[in-house]
Design a protein around this nucleic acid. Structure first.
Length: 395
DNA sequence: ATCCCTTGTGGTGGATTGTT
DNA sequence: AACAATCCACCACAAGGGAT
């Protein structure tokens, strides 16, 4: 923003609420007409837009996220108590200077999502809106956002504070879907931003979407010119953000209830890790037994299952898994090491332990002639050390 | 009894990433 | 540019077996 932008920006927000620049006033009417919205007239007018759409045929009353939240969310979440929210702002610098000019909130009723959006056409329009919002905030027991824990939520709270208003969402439970998404797709998607999850997983298509990075400039342009075209794109962008939040939450719940439905997105390995951490033996077994034999995640799933068996001293099953993994190119060193550990420390059968150790060493030697990578080197040192110790011990 | 070695586990600092 | 959550590499420590 150059200096002339700044001047006109602050001029138009000079606090004289009864004397609006005519461009803004008629623009607000244009916007209201376009979205069939309603202009709310306290001292400082703002625009309220309500839209809704279907989320599917048969929605349940509640969602479960025990596994995906790592036991953070133990109780089922009632869908009608969830408030989805997303802000569009004048910038990324989360401090007091950032203004949220579009506030979007979604709630689920029946199988539909109802989105209420509040567009503030200028500075100094928050007080009355925040009063109204606080009246509704009481109805919700849970907040859902995307990266909202670091961005939207602290920003919204500081805006309420700056307006000397109590923030009625202060102690509400907050689910940030970004972190669940990252746990699932960190390895299989190049990016876990909301747009990637939409296109790759949810099948959401954004037509004519405005890039997030352009939103602050577009809002400044509107304040300067009163042209509504880009504001319309921002409102649509925000609407899609919120409906996608709801779709993603439902998708996560579906994975939670039936993890095998998620096989086609290459996240079995991640699910197996979460199941291992949650000590969910049933899920680990289901994953190992039911994902296709050609799935590239099979070795990793077996590895996690074998570690679970090891921790619970289920040696027969652990042994059988390790013996299968010996044939896996990616996991044979892991398997051979575990077998060597088992025979050394559990069975005290040093000869058998040496057998697996030297088998690993001979594979490493063969590999070294083809290629030489850090992983092989790491295993080489450790197996050599193990071999020497075992030879001494058995002597 | 005491020491040494190996393994598993819990804690910590640094890097990464998404939000407008 | 602010910051929450996560991951990963690393470290310290406890437990247990074997050797002296």
């Amino acid at each position: 923003m150059d200096i002339s932008d700044k001047l006109s920006f602050y001029k138009s927000s000079s606090g004289n609420e009864t004397h609006q620049p005519s461009a803004v006033s008629s623009s607000l009417k244009t916007l209201a007409d376009h979205f069939n919205g309603k202009i709310v007239y306290p001292h400082a007018p703002y625009l309220k837009i309500v839209r809704e759409e279907s989320l599917g045929d048969s929605l349940q009353d509640a969602v479960t996220l025990k596994l995906l939240s790592r036991n953070e969310i133990n109780e089922p979440l009632a869908l009608d108590g969830i408030l989805f929210f997303d802000l569009e702002t004048t910038g990324l610098a989360g401090g007091a200077g950032t203004y949220a000019f579009l506030l979007g909130f979604g709630r689920i009723a029946g199988n539909r999502i109802i989105v209420e959006q509040y567009f503030l056409p200028d500075y100094g329009r928050e007080y009355h809106l925040f009063e109204q919002l606080n009246l509704q905030f009481n109805e919700f027991s849970c907040l859902v956002s995307y990266n909202g824990k670091s961005y939207d939520y602290p920003l919204l709270r500081s805006r309420f504070l700056l307006n000397r208003q109590k923030f009625k969402l202060e102690d509400i439970f907050h689910v940030d879907l970004l972190h669940i998404a990252r746990r699932l797709w960190k390895d299989s998607l190049p990016s876990c931003d909301l747009k990637s999850i939409e296109t790759e997983i949810l099948g959401v298509n954004r037509e004519g979407d405005i890039p997030g990075a352009y939103i602050p400039q577009a809002y400044f342009n509107f304040i300067r010119t009163g042209i509504v075209h880009e504001v319309i794109r921002i409102v649509n962008h925000n609407y899609t953000d919120i409906t996608s939040l709801a779709r993603m939450l439902l998708y996560f719940s579906q994975i939670e209830n039936n993890p095998l439905t998620a096989v086609h997105h290459g996240i079995q390995a991640r699910l197996a890790k979460l199941a291992y951490e949650a000590e969910d033996y049933t899920l680990l077994q289901k994953l190992a037994g039911n994902i296709g034999p050609d799935s590239p995640a099979i070795p990793e799933v077996k590895k996690m299952l074998s570690l679970f068996c090891k921790r619970s001293r289920n040696w027969p099953e652990a042994l059988s898994l390790w013996n299968e993994l010996v044939n896996s190119a990616s996991h044979r060193f892991f398997a051979l090491e575990e077998l060597a550990k088992y025979y050394e420390h559990i069975e005290a059968d040093y000869k058998e332990a040496i057998k697996y150790t030297s088998r690993a060493l001979s594979i490493i030697r063969a590999l070294e002639e083809i290629q030489y990578d850090a992983n092989t080197f790491f295993y080489k040192e450790s197996f050599q050390y193990r071999y020497q110790r075992l030879v001494q011990k058995s002597a």
